[in-house]
Structure formats: C-alpha cells, structure tokens
Design a protein around this nucleic acid. Sequence first.
DNA 1: TCTGACCTGCGA
DNA 2: TCGCAGGTCAGA
Length: 268
Amino acid sequence: MPELPEVETIRRQLQQHYRGEQIHRLEVHTPTLLKNLSPEALVEAVTGKTIQNFRRRGKFLIFEIDHQQLVFHLGMSGIFVQDVHQSRYPRHIHLSFTFRSGKQLHYQDVRKFGGIWWYRTPHHFPELGMEPLSQNFTLNKFKKLLHLRRMNIKRLLMEQSIIAGIGNIYANEMLFQAGISPLRRSDTLSVDEVRRLHRAIQDVLKAAIERFGTTYSAYRTVEGQSGENQKFLKVYHQQGQPCPRCGKPIQKIVLNGRSTFYCPGCQK
DNA sequence: TCTGACCTGCGA
DNA sequence: TCGCAGGTCAGA
C-alpha cells in the first residue's frame, strides 16, 4: 500500500491524536510481524512509556518512545485504526495499544507484508537514500544520481536506496508530469528533462499529501477516511482513457515486474 | 535482470 | 476461478 504520501498522512494524524500518550497496555496478536524481538520483550520495553513523537523516513513510520524507536513498515496493506469497530478486517489487527487516557490504537495489515522493529538507540536507516521532500534533495544531486546509478528511470525512482518513499503509483504519475517515458534509461535524460522530473517528484508527492494520499482498496487515514488523490491520477489505472495532455490512449505495460501506465504520445 | 514467494481480498 | 494489488526479498 502506502508510499510516502500515505505514510506521511498517517504520521501527521498520529502526531495529532497520540503524541504524549502513555502506553498502558500493548497486545501483540501476530508475533511474526515483530522482526527483531519477542512479543514479551516488546511489551516489557514499552509498557508505561510515553510516545514523544512520530517521525517518517521513506516509507517507514517511527514511534519515538523514551528515546527508543518502534519502527513500522506498512507493506502493501498496513494501516492504523482508532477503534476496532471501525475496522473492516478486525481479524487482521496485529497490534493493539491501550493508553493511560483510555484511547486505543490498532495496527491492521491484511496481507501481512509489513514489519515491526524495535531499536534501543536511534536508527538511521543506512539502507535508505535521499528524502525527496528534504532541502537536501537538490537538482544537482539528483542529476548526479541519474548518471551514477544508470538504470531504467522508473526503477530508479522506486529504488529505496537511491530515493526513499516513491512507489508504483507515484513513479507513474511523476514520469507523466515530466513527459518522460518509463522505458528510458536514467543517464539519457537531457538537462531539461532532469529539471522537469526533479520538479515532478516534489509536486506529485506534495499534492498527494495535501489530498491525504491515494486510496485504491485498503488504505485509510488514522481517522478512517479514504485519501482523495485517486481522483486526480493522470495515468495510474487509466489504461485506455485519453491522455489529459494529448488525447492518445494511456497504455499499460509490465516493466520490472510492475504495472506501468504511460502515454506513448507525450512521454518521450 | 527476472521470477517467484510472501498473504489475503476483491472484482471480472 | 483467475488475475491483480500501493512492497520487498531471495535465488536462479
């Protein structure tokens, strides 16, 4: 499921509703989702502690708990729900927090592709590349990456060790906005194309965050709402529809094993 | 670089 | 019943 905009939307709402909450009880219903410690050890580690902050790095969501970190990767279908009764899939709730205030928070993941880690010291995600919405992600650095890591451009956008947070929906949309074919190799882009793509990466992500992410099936915000960005997709799942820019039909192909949508008329 | 595996639900 | 799905990894 969630790419950077969905994880960021979830983070913002967790911050709004759960920052400063003290953990009264933690129940682990599915131990296999814990990747680096036992359920007993996690319960012991967090009970009585307070959540200071919620952060995001790429597609990872980080609960900061007394200078230690509980890290979630939401896989394809991970979400947080405030109330079990608002969940469509109560049997897929894997972790339940009860806070001293009486509030609850549940982690649900139908397909169980996600994972949960506990770090006693701040984890800096050495495996992840640049944050595309940070000041650090400059046009110059992006240009260098495209030449250093020569590969198919869509694959590069989705390669978490190069740029962190972009998945299949947004990679398709970014390449459309920039007018670049997903079949191109990264080191063949002109100066102007690199500039357009750098711009598109930030535009597409920011717009999707403003619209609370893209809901195709399972994704809901913490408050239980669907995202709104699906109403604004130009190419993703639009095969056969006329291109909004040139009118030619949007094509669907499989590239690097993933469904890929583009306009052969205006993405060169 | 590609394919299958992980897991479940949904819609054609 | 089959194909597909917002992700990632291992192995050929």
